[in-house]
Amino acid sequence: MTINMLTAFLTVSAILFSIGMFGALTKRNMIVLLLSIELMLNAVNLNLVAFSKYGMTPSLHGQMFTLFSIAIAAAEAAVGIAILLAFYRQRVTVNADEMNELREP
C-alpha cells in the first residue's frame, strides 16, 4: 500500500476538528456548544495517538498524554454542565447569546 497512514489519520483529525469548530462557532444552544468542544478535543487526541504509532520515535507517551487529556475533557464537561444548570435556574434559557451577565438579574 502506497497510502501514508500518518497523513491519513492527520487528515481525518483535521476534518473532525473543522466540523467541531464550525459547530462551536455557529450553534447557539449551550449543550451543542459543549458537544462541539468535545469533538475538537477528540480530534486532537486522535492526532496524539497517531503520532504515538507512526511518529518518528513511536512509543507509549502519546497514549499517556491522550489519557490525561481525556481526564481533563471529562472535568471540563462536568463543570460546563454545572454552569449550564446554574445559568438555566436563573434565566430559564440555554441560549448562549443571552449568557452575558455574571450576577443575578
Partner: peptide, 9 residues
C-alpha cells in the same frame, strides 16, 4: 466518524 459529526451539525 464524519457522518456522525456532520449529522450533529
Amino acid at each position: 466518524a464524519f457522518s456522525g459529526a456532520i449529522m450533529m451539525i
